[in-house]
Nucleic acid binder design. Structure first.
Lengths: 341, 341
DNA sequence: TTGAAAGCGATACCAC
DNA sequence: GTGGTATCGCTTTCAA
């Protein structure tokens, strides 16, 4: 049986209320009494019960706001399903999750949504921010008001957010370089395809891949990176063009979206299973391609975790007074093949 | 705000106690009242609060027993750390975890430990059983007494355990075959090294690997499997012998322990980085070898998860009356390279 | 067959 | 400064 507040109170010869005040640093307690209680709590290894605390808090439900952008993509849909899982869990734990999804990239809507959340009484926010000056300013303002913010999927450099939950894109890019090299032991020609120039995740994945290949795997020759703007049509075009010049293209690395287009082009050219394809995000579409052999390796970001974790961290912070242990919660870099889907 | 028992009681015009009896199927309720309450609960989408329930149960702490074998191996040490994490979490949730570790394989001690747990009042058990007749009989007996059992790491076929938590060794073996094939696109000679003949996990990993290679990757030639009894000395010997006959050995697949011996032999022969090594379990030793390039791919079983999950499932079952949703909780097949450690 | 009441651990509020 | 007390949602006697 764990030690309870009541036991501390008994041992100290005071009431539970006094112990509570001390443990929450609310003051209004005689210094000597306070010291004694602090000492006692340590000695008896007191740890507050999340059960009791949660129960009390469930009276006036704590509200946690989540705003998620880009929800039109299959990947983000999975993130949202993680958020909904969190909503369910939080409900049982006596808290309420307010969710707003923004289907595309819209900084203005993001800001409006943040304001809306605050108006509805959100006591903490989880966001997938866009990195614009407006949003940076807004987030700073929110944090200054004492509302904790967690970023997920995309970070917001330079803001005092509690922490970031998402992929370590640099390590992911390196991992892909390693996979490409081990699949092409004899060396070969590789085409990197990225999504948007300036999209921080895409950029990081791309340059980490390029840097690692250049530094560690000289047998691999890199073509200049091409940008497909996350469009399958464009990525297909890019690969087809490349195949004209290099019919024996050995590998394609896709750091953003456009995976299907790449697969289509290679399949049309009869290069499926010959040209190694490495890409990101375990969407249904991509899972299918893994099984069909169109994709060789895929980096899964743990989408549901990205949706779930931020809300839980905010709960722990707000209700249990337990701040996140780290500033970066990197989700696992999960390597998927057709065999471990 | 979620629907509470009280609200149902109010709506049904009865007391909370009556609703409670109905929802727990304890009987002693007039059938018509019971039907009305059931209907109401469904309509109002009542879901019991884990908070309230946990709090009550924390009075007479529910005891959950965990018995873990083979704890002398580095892998099992990580499993134990997962168990200890669960112990901590359960404590906060008002339950108590009794842990007994058995360093080696000892069916008799296992049985004694189970009895001990029951005597100490364990209301549920998580076990890494050995597959002997004695243990099967004991587990059956325990389950017949109404004490739920969960197996982890090793399953116990034919017992009515609640569920199994652990690796899907067959899919893992297949995954390794796929990795070996993609690393040796031109084909090559591969040596499978297993631990014990008759050890179900080792056997499954081995035969799934062999079957997949034979069926899917004809370019890979398989040497007959060798058994090293989990000994680095023996595995080193095996590899050295093989290298004499086949100095250009292209791959080694290690389904049990003995990884270090394999790496040592290859390193001595100057084959590190040339012969592809694929093995299991992210121990410190193995992590080091991944970084040094002695191991190319490694399958991580999610050791901590294997220790943590069973206790949580028992808690959910005993305290929250939520039985496991599946009979097999396969832990993720995590592919590790030096880049995504 | 039913209900009233106590209590799990922590918090909030109101008296003193 | 401090203590008493109601409360959160649920389970568990005990009494009717």
């Amino acid at each position: 049986m764990a030690v309870t507040l009541k036991e501390i109170a008994g041992a100290a010869g005071v009431s539970r209320a006094t112990v509570d005040r001390v443990l929450h640093g609310r003051g209004h307690v005689k210094p000597e009494v306070e010291a004694r209680i602090r000492e006692l709590a340590r000695e008896m290894r007191y740890q507050p019960s999340p059960l009791g605390r949660g129960l009390v808090k469930s009276a006036r439900a704590t509200k946690i706001g989540v705003v998620c952008q880009f929800t039109e993509t299959p990947f983000m849909k999975m993130v949202v399903s993680g958020i909904e899982q969190a909503r369910e869990d939080l409900r049982l734990m006596g808290a309420e999750l307010l969710l707003d999804t923004i289907d595309s990239y819209a900084p203005a809507r993001m800001i409006a949504s943040i304001d809306e959340m605050l108006k509805e009484g959100a006591q903490g926010l989880a966001l997938t921010p866009g990195n614009t000056a407006d949003i940076r300013a807004k987030v700073r303002e929110v944090i200054a008001q004492g509302v904790p913010v967690i970023t997920f999927n995309t970070d917001l450099p330079g803001a005092e957010r509690l922490c970031y939950v998402g992929l370590d894109n640099i390590r992911a890019g390196r991992t892909c370089a390693g996979l490409m090299a081990s699949s092409l032991r004899g060396g070969g020609l590789v085409l990197p395809v990225s999504g948007y120039r300036g999209h921080s995740a895409h950029d990081q994945r791309l340059s980490a891949f390029q840097d690692t290949v250049r530094a560690t795997f000289p047998a691999l020759r890199l073509l200049p990176a091409a940008y497909c703007h996350d469009s399958d049509r464009v990525s297909e075009e890019i690969v087809l063009e490349t195949l004209k010049k290099h019919p024996d293209l050995n590998g394609v690395y896709v750091s953003g979206n456009g995976q299907s287009g790449v697969c289509r082009a290679l399949r049309g050219a009869g290069r499926t299973g010959k040209t190694v394809v490495i890409c990101y995000d375990l969407t249904e579409q991509n899972a299918l391609e893994l099984e069909r052999g169109g994709i060789d390796f895929l980096i899964d970001q743990g989408a549901r975790e990205q949706g779930y974790r931020p809300a839980r961290l905010l709960y722990d912070y707000l209700i249990l007074n337990t701040p996140p242990k780290r500033t970066f919660y990197y989700t696992d870099i999960l390597i998927k093949t057709r065999y471990n889907l």
